[in-house]
Every structure is written in C-alpha cells, then in structure tokens.
C-alpha cells in the first residue's frame, strides 16, 4: 500500500461512514460490497474486494445495529481484508481470517466513539445556553470527526504495520484456526438471519418463512425470482385477500351475483 492509496482509502472511509449514518444510499446497495469494490479498485484488485465484501455482507444481512446498538462492523472488516489480500495477492478465503476478527474488534472502538460524541453534545449544549450559536454549530458538526475516524483507525494501523506483514501473520496461523474460521464464516449468516427474525414477529409469519425455504430448497430459484413471488404474496395480503373475513365477505357477494344471474336466466 503506497501513500496515495492510503490517502484515497482514508477519504473513502470518511465518505462511506457519512453515507451509512446520514444519507443512506450505499447502504441499500450493500456497504460491505461497495467498500470491497472501491478499496479493491484503489488497491488494484476489485474482484477480491467484491468477493470479500459479499462474504461479509451475507453475515450481516439487514444491516443490524438498530436503536443505536453496537454491532460487528463487517464493512470495516471488508476494507482491511481487501487491502491485505490485494497487497499479498491472496484470495478471498484468506481475507476472512483477518476480516472477521477486525469486524468484531470494531465494536470496542464504537463504544469509544459514542463516548467522545457524548462529550461533544455537552459542549454544544453549554454553548447554546450561553447564547453562542456558532460555537454550538461547530461542536455539533464536529460530531462527524470521531465517526469518520472510526473506520480510519484500523486502516492507519494496517498501513503502519504493513499489509504484507499482516498477511505473513495470517499465513503463520495453523490450520486448526484457519479451517475453523472458514467453517464459522459459513455458519455465521445464521446469526444475522436470526436477529432479523427477532425483529420480524416470526411466530405470526412463520408459514411464509417455510414458503421461502421450500422455494429455494427444492426449486433453487434465483433471489430475484424469490423476491418476485414474495412480492405477489405480500401484495395479495395487502389487498386483504389473505384475510378470512374479507374472503368470506367476497364469497357472499359473488354468490349473490351468481344467484341474481341465475334468476335472470330463468326468466
């Protein structure tokens, strides 16, 4: 990683973090995949970035962390893993061994950042109390600084250590760690999905989970196909067609119409 690459990646870190917390556009595409793609481009290997981003994205589907909770930052893990893999010429599997621990460690930094922000909001409030609007504005806006620094810190640390050195460290890891991490990587998406199920009132809607499960398990449809089928079912429910009361009501009107029709035929 040369100095120019470092600067570009740091600038991108500030940009994506701002997007993730305020604008929220890349978030809908996929923050880890955007990160892998762009950092990969800067490092000269976008393909490995895409693959690492996709692998880590699948672990945190739904982008957990609602209500201000700390969460493993797979988007930062993607950046670090992409730099290491691109610099050392390694594949995406290798990146997982570094991306996963970094993602988990980021939660500690999250606590620190929210603490610094608490200090800043107090400063802003006391400025307002003293009638100093400009000061308050400055403190509030500086709230962007600790948040932008958050993803930059591990990148800087990686630059100082040297990505190749970190890759050598990962290379020295014995198989009982690397192999186990790759098994864990395949199982971890279950946590993300289970968290989403906790948000979504599974008890009432379990039948639809089975529908999706069966469509994928037995027909192996592409994701867009599943989403389209799902959309049809959701639309029918929105129109009230899945509601037994309205179905019964509709049946009554229909049978009435039929009877009227039948009467006319007789006449």
């Amino acid at each position: 990683m040369n100095f120019l690459q470092l600067v570009l990646i740091l600038a991108y870190c500030a940009l994506y973090y701002y997007d993730y917390w305020n604008i929220m556009i890349m978030y809908y595409g996929s923050t880890p995949i955007c990160n892998g793609l762009i950092v990969g481009l800067i490092m000269g290997n976008p393909l490995v970035g895409l693959e690492i981003g996709a692998t880590l994205q699948l672990m945190q589907l739904g982008g957990v962390g609602y209500g201000g909770a700390s969460y493993p930052e797979y988007d930062v893990g993607t950046i670090i893993a992409t730099i290491v893999c691109a610099a050392a010429g390694q594949g995406a599997d290798f990146g997982l061994a570094i991306g996963l621990p970094v993602s988990l460690l980021m939660m500690q930094i999250d606590v620190l950042v929210k603490t610094v922000s608490t200090f800043m909001i107090h400063k802003a409030q006391s400025c307002t109390e003293n009638g100093n609007d400009k000061g308050a504005f400055r403190w509030l806006l500086s709230g962007l600084i600790p948040w932008s620094l958050k993803p930059m810190l591990p990148v800087l640390l990686l630059f100082i250590l040297g990505p190749e050195k970190v890759a050598d460290l990962v290379n020295m890891m014995p198989d009982f760690i690397i192999g186990a991490l790759s098994v864990a990587g395949n199982m971890l998406p279950a946590v993300g999905i289970a968290i989403l199920m906790r948000y979504m009132n599974v008890k009432e809607y379990f039948i639809y989970l089975i529908l999706g499960y069966a469509m994928m398990g037995y027909f192996n449809l592409p994701m867009i196909g599943i989403a389209l089928f799902g959309f049809v079912v959701a639309y029918l429910s929105y129109k009230g067609m899945g509601n037994p009361v309205s179905v019964a009501a509709e049946r009554n009107t229909v049978s009435e119409n039929v009877q009227i029709g039948a009467d006319e035929d007789e006449l």
Binding site: P189, L196, Y208, L209, L211, G212, Y213, F229
Partner: peptide, 9 residues
C-alpha cells in the same frame, strides 16, 4: 419472511 426463508437455505 419469504426472502429470509430462501436465504437460510
């Protein structure tokens, strides 16, 4: 829920 069910597999 349908998408989640598909994702699980």
């Amino acid at each position: 829920m349908i998408v989640l069910g598909a994702l699980i597999v």
